[in-house]
Nucleic acid binder design. Structure first.
Lengths: 263, 263
DNA sequence: GCCTAGGTCCCGTCT
DNA sequence: AGACGGGGCCTAGGC
């Protein structure tokens, strides 16, 4: 770890180069201008900003406010540094699509480099995927007798979340949303319908599964005969939890209560 | 500006509190766990991360790699700090939607606080808007004789980018895309067509203006009789540039070559 | 490489 | 407030 307060440009460039070489993270606070050129272009004049360069080749330039960086570059960039006209220039070039971020610093308040030890796994509890898992594990969440045939099924250009048949032999097409389902969700489902046919003498039943419906969509849904089945993340998680417990119990039974091996 | 290297928890909490009170930016590097609870939930175990807290109440927790923060909170949060069980806890609570981010640090490598002076304006040279401006300034970019009547014209489900008449009196409806136009662009344009009628004995001519077309859309476009006019952002910018120069020349002429005032 | 869809998307804008 | 669309969106998964 290196911490420099108000380093000279040469000193800063030296540490910066060493750190980038070693794939370390660098944070700087500097008075700078930033310009971007690529898919579009941008410019911002002089100001003090926090600059973060990571070992995987991404860049963040943050102002004193706002969640979003004012300029950035995603992972995979090649860095160059050089001193020119009394300024420290840092270029981050992304090869594809070709994009260039250029930071020109004339006064560096502060520079530090770190090697962050972090092997932890990130666990996100629940999203659409959890709802899908719950439906696959327990189709009765939607309705009794539903059998799931496929999921993430490819139709024309897109993917049906869950695809199955109901107890009457009708085709069931489910679009899952974790947030209140709006017009976009309905449109998506309607689009899929064009490419799906029911069995002989049967119907296709499009169903939106979501915690609730946005306000304007009811008329369209009625017109298109789309059904709505409320399901929350909460409920999905509970279902999966229960399922896991009963699976464990079943496993115990199979193994005669012996503790299972660890992988 | 304050810079502390390996501060104790109490010292860190003191500086943190002072900085947050003063709406300054704080950056820390610490061994920590982070948990989030709100629209969904997440957890991550022990690891060293870069933590940024800004004066407008947003938080970023960055790992050693990846462009995106592993955890975050947008602007508008209320911060709380406290020491508990040998750890420094920082909570960032967002009132609506109610979400809580909790960072528990047990070893702080580094803490710094800054007051960033930055009044610069951010200028994005970009995108659809420049292309639209270019077309409005020079309709001949699309075809000779085109007259623009309106832009961002409201029709039932959205806004028509540019709306005009061609030299034959046909209605022209233009959808602009800065990227290769895909199925979505075609669909959007088709949607608008339902709500637009041509003049007596005339046609409605839908035109997609984009640098190129995505691969699958040609059949649909032919079927729907949608025209394609290639236009790049580059070309648009050149046109606007030229336009600006000629405007300046005209202005100079008006002012008798006097240098224009600075605002 | 392109295309599709999701995200704790974030963000502005309008009703 | 909710709803809708755009973003240099980013990112993951298929093909």
């Amino acid at each position: 770890m290196v911490v420099l307060v108000s380093p000279g440009l040469d000193e800063a460039r030296l540490e910066l180069g060493k750190a980038l070489e070693a794939r370390m993270m660098v944070t700087m606070v500097a008075n700078c201008t930033v310009s971007y050129s690529g898919r579009t272009g941008s410019d911002i004049g002089e100001g003090e900003r926090l600059i973060v360069l990571k070992g995987d080749g991404c860049v963040l330039v943050h102002r004193g406010r706002d969640y979003q960086p004012v300029n950035w570059q995603p992972s995979g960039c090649v860095f160059q540094t050089r001193i020119e006209g009394g300024r420290l220039l840092v270029k981050a070039v992304r090869p594809s699509p070709l994009e260039t971020l250029t930071i020109e610093m004339d006064r560096i308040e502060f520079l530090s480099t770190f090697n962050l030890k972090d092997e932890a796994e990130f666990i996100l509890h629940s999203s659409e995927e959890e709802m899908q898992k719950a439906i696959l594990a327990e189709p009765d969440l939607i309705e009794q007798g539903l059998r799931v045939i496929d999921f993430e099924k490819k139709v024309a250009p897109g993917f049906v979340d869950v695809y199955g048949v109901d107890s009457q032999g009708n085709t069931v097409v489910i679009e899952i949303k974790k947030d209140p389902a709006g017009a976009a969700a309905v449109k998506q489902l309607v689009e899929y319908l064009k490419y799906l046919s029911p069995a002989e003498g049967k119907k296709v039943r499009p169903i939106i599964v979501a915690p609730s419906l946005a306000k304007g969509v009811l008329p369209t849904m009625e017109k298109m005969k789309i059904e709505f089945k409320p399901l929350t993340l909460q409920k999905s998680l509970e279902t999966l939890q229960k399922r896991m417990k009963s699976d464990q119990k079943a496993l115990k039974g199979w193994l005669g209560d012996a503790p299972s091996e660890k992988s």
